[in-house]
Amino acid sequence: MSLQLTDVHISAGDREFVHGVSFDLPAGGVVGIVGESGSGKTLTCRAALGILPPGFTVSSGTVSLGGRDTATLSTREWTALRGSTISAVFQDPASYLNPSLTVGSQVAEVLQVKLRLRRRAARDRAVELLDSVRLPDVYRRYPHELSGGMLQRALIATAIAAGPRVLIADEATTALDVTVQSEILDLLADLRDSTGLALVVVSHDLAVVAQLCDEVLVMRDGAVVEQGPVSDVLYAPRHEYTRLLIDEHESYGLDRFLSLDGAALEGAVLEGAVRERAPLEGADHGAAR
């Protein structure tokens, strides 16, 4: 198991904020956590990363990373593990990059520190990493020159730089446009396929989680109200809150159009992409100014 949470409770003082979260995340697996703000999803992630806010502790249960109980880790061991075994990306990518340094140098820095690569080797590897998140030619660019989606991809490159086995994406696509969101989610799925990276995808949007995950946890007020394989949770929700989330999507999502024409659409999009590629490239260039 890459990451294993067993009945994790998180408290601050006398108050318990998370009342028992358990899941097993194998290599190449994807676990989704859905919940509103205040549901305890972010605290759970922070516990897995060993970065709970001051005053908060894992009051019972265990978090084990690569078979090791993290409660036994010293601060130094934790620091060594973060980045190289478990890593994370968050909601607001701009605030995690230094605006006065180029994007590439910040990726390279991680490599120099975590993998002890020499300068030149770190730079070459950073370029490779940026290529792998489909950001060629941004090594020498500054954060303000990049769009939100590009910044988030640069942060993913930074997060996977030291070859972690687990990546936590906590609301990583929340602030982005839909087409950019799908780009990030697709990138995460590609990374899982190509490197066996295990993912924890955290979102307030059930559909985002549904796109990517094998197993889903629905959290509310610190408790897991529903947990199971994606298909079970979506098609046979047992808890009222999960049903509410699904209903909301059905009345204001695209699902009602797609459930009617779902198959047709999938065909149309797929075919369209392939079929229209040639004529569009030829014909539309003149029209497109």
Binding site: A207, D255, L258, E266, A268, E276
Partner: peptide, 26 residues
């Protein structure tokens, strides 16, 4: 939504997170 013609619209519809059926594949 069900029969988009412009590639951008296709991407937009195909990117929208949905519950039941994936709108378009990767």
């Amino acid at each position: 939504i069900s029969r988009p013609t412009h590639p951008y619209t296709k991407l937009l519809v195909g990117s929208a997170p949905t519950l039941r059926s994936a709108a378009a594949d990767r």
